[in-house]
Amino acid sequence: MFELRLVQGSLLKKVLESIKDLVNDANFDCSSTGFSLQAMDSSHVALVALLLRSEGFEHYRCDRNLTMGMNLANMAKMLKCAGNDDIITIKADDGTDTVTFMFESPSQDKISDFEMKLMDIDSEHLGIPEAEYEAIIRMPSAEFARICRDLSSIGDTVVISVTKEGVRFSARGDIGAANIVCRQNATVDKPEDATIIEMQEPVTLTFALRYMNSFTKATPLAEQVTISMSSDLPVVVEYKVAGMGYIRYYLAPKIEE
């Protein structure tokens, strides 16, 4: 059987909110390592990889590797029924086609369980090669979300350019053009407010803002976001999940033919 218990249930609610608009159906992989998922959006332009390590849960039991196919909109509907302070338990018995979500209020005076049907999902796993990125930007996640939102009112694509000056986000459209430059700023009171740019090589890449905006749904999960770029490679936009793991979004660039 498979069972996990997460006292900070709101994390799981936030994780679902971060992926449900990008991916419709996905296989969750349960193993001794943890609870993970890899899925592409329907047009195969973006990929999301989630890992919640087993050590991060208050209780984690996985007798054998298990794949649970779930409709993420339905899963999100169920997790929305959990209170923000609730403890969430996910359970699945071997050989059944359902998963149970159990929600306990902090004072244990309300206990709910929701059973959801699992689905068979034909999904392909992609091998993500280890890469040395030419530029890595760490910045406040709310700032990145703000930039993506602001630029989408100007154009459909963002050009992200890292030079020794800093990182420039540019968009252009019918009404005009916008450039937002963020410089390295490590001298802040709180580390979560820092912007750190590690650059081996200057790199410029173009991306669809629609996907970037979808990735920023993960903003409530982490104060900082890490954006890793190399020429002609998908960008990686990573949000840590409080000491448990991460959500990584990979987005294929737009390339001039």
Binding site: H44, V45, L47, H125, P129, A208, P234, A252, E256, E257
Partner: peptide, 14 residues
């Protein structure tokens, strides 16, 4: 303009 590529162009299927 630039052409949108798919992620499967960069990452191989296992």
């Amino acid at each position: 303009g630039p052409k949108q590529h798919t992620i499967t162009k960069f990452f191989q299927k296992l």
